[in-house]
C-alpha cells in the first residue's frame, strides 16, 4: 500500500521551504489558510503573509500588485472561488499582463466531499486553460506537488496549480523532476494508453494492473502539466497504442480530456474515451463515495479501456 499524502499538505510544506529560501516569496489567502495549508507559511513569516479576508477578487489584485513590486506571490483559496469568483481578476490582472503570480487552488474536484456541489470545482481546469499566457498544473501526488510548486516559483509568469483536499496515494515515492509542459510515462504498454491527471493517475496504474491480468497491455501517461500540454508524448502514445482513455477529476468538457482530444484530432486521430464528470455538478458525500458514484475508479477505467479497444 502506498503512502497517502494530500497534495495541499505537500504544498504547505513546500511553500514554507520556499519562504525560507527566497525572501521575495509572499503568500496571500482568503480566510482559508488552515485548509489551504498556507497557514504554515503565515506562522513563520507573518510579515510576508497577507490575509485578504473573504474577498477573492481583491486578493488576486493585491497579488498582482505585489508581483509588480518584485515579489513572487502565491495566492490560495479553494478552486471553486479562485477560478470562479476571481476569474475576471485572474484574466485582467494576471494573465493579460503576464503577471508573476501563482494561484494555488486547493479543494479541486469532487473529493472535497461533504461540502457538496457548491464547493466542488469541476470546471476550473477548462476555465484556466482557455486563458492565454496561463500555465495550468495538476499534480498527482505529494512529491510531485512539491516539485510542481518549485517549478511554478521558478517560472516567470502566471501559473494555476490545482490541488486536492483528500489524501491520495504517492506514485512518485522517490520524488520527481517536474518540467512544465512535460508528461511522465508511468508504465509502458502497447494496446491502449491511459492519459490522466491529478489523483486519477494512481487509479490508472491500478486499472493497468487489472487489465494486465486480462492480457491487455495499457500504457499510463500522467500529465501534471495540462497547459502547456506534452503534445509530442500524447501523439506518440496514440501512434504506438492506437487508443486513448483520458481520466480526470473534472468535467469531461474542456479539461484534460478536452485538451488531449484537441491534440489528437489535429495530430493523430484515434478512438478516445473520456472519463470524468459527464457535464454535471457534484453533490455531498464522502470523497470515495463520490468517486464511485461519478465513475472515477479503477474499475470504471477498465470498462472505458474495454470500450475503446472495441473501437480500434
Amino acid at each position: 500500500m502506498s503512502e497517502m499524502i494530500a497534495t495541499r499538505d505537500a504544498y504547505g510544506k513546500t511553500l514554507l521551504e520556499l519562504g525560507r529560501e527566497n525572501p521575495r516569496v509572499v503568500v496571500l489567502d482568503a480566510d482559508l489558510s488552515g485548509s489551504t495549508k498556507t497557514g504554515l507559511f503565515a506562522k513563520e513569516f507573518p510579515d510576508r503573509f497577507f490575509n485578504a479576508g473573504i474577498a477573492e477578487a481583491n486578493m488576486v489584485g493585491m497579488a498582482a500588485g505585489l508581483a509588480s513590486g518584485g515579489m513572487i506571490p502565491f495566492a490560495s483559496t479553494f478552486a471553486v472561488f479562485a477560478a470562479g469568483r476571481a476569474f475576471e481578476q485572474i484574466r485582467q490582472s494576471l494573465a493579460y499582463p503576464k503577471m508573476n503570480v501563482k494561484i494555488v487552488a486547493t479543494h479541486g474536484g469532487i473529493t472535497v466531499g461533504e461540502d457538496g456541489g457548491s464547493h466542488q470545482s469541476v470546471e476550473d481546469l477548462a476555465i484556466m486553460r482557455a486563458l492565454p499566457n496561463m500555465t495550468v498544473l495538476c499534480p498527482a501526488d505529494g512529491p510531485e506537488t512539491s516539485a510542481a510548486i518549485r517549478a511554478a516559483a521558478a517560472l516567470q509568469g502566471p501559473v494555476y496549480v490545482r490541488l486536492g483536499r483528500a489524501k491520495v496515494p504517492v506514485i512518485f515515492p522517490g520524488g520527481c523532476d517536474f518540467t512544465v509542459g512535460r508528461g511522465a510515462t508511468l508504465r509502458e504498454g502497447s494496446d491502449l494508453t491511459f492519459i490522466t491527471t491529478g489523483l486519477m493517475s494512481a487509479m490508472a496504474l491500478d486499472a493497468a494492473r487489472i487489465l494486465e491480468a486480462e492480457k491487455i497491455s495499457a500504457r499510463v501517461i500522467h500529465l501534471g502539466s495540462i497547459k502547456p500540454l506534452d503534445v509530442e508524448l500524447v501523439l506518440r502514445a496514440a501512434r504506438e497504442t492506437g487508443a486513448v482513455v483520458t481520466a480526470e477529476e473534472h468535467s469531461v468538457i474542456g479539461g484534460l480530456g478536452g485538451a488531449v482530444c484537441e491534440a489528437l484530432a489535429e495530430g493523430f486521430p484515434v478512438p478516445v474515451e473520456r472519463v470524468g464528470l459527464r457535464d454535471v455538478f457534484g453533490q455531498s458525500g464522502t470523497g470515495e463515495e463520490l468517486l464511485a458514484h461519478y465513475g472515477l475508479t479503477p474499475a470504471h477505467l477498465v470498462e472505458a479501456a474495454e470500450r475503446v479497444l472495441k473501437r480500434k
Binding site: 509572499v26 510576508r48 497577507f50 477578487a57 488576486v60 493585491m62 500588485g65 505585489l66 506571490p73
Partner: peptide
C-alpha cells in the same frame, strides 16, 4: 482592479 493592484504595490513597496 486598479485599486487592488495599487494596494498590492503599496504592500510590496513597504516590504522592500
Amino acid at each position: 482592479q486598479g485599486i487592488s493592484q495599487a494596494v498590492g504595490i503599496a504592500l510590496a513597496s513597504r516590504l522592500a
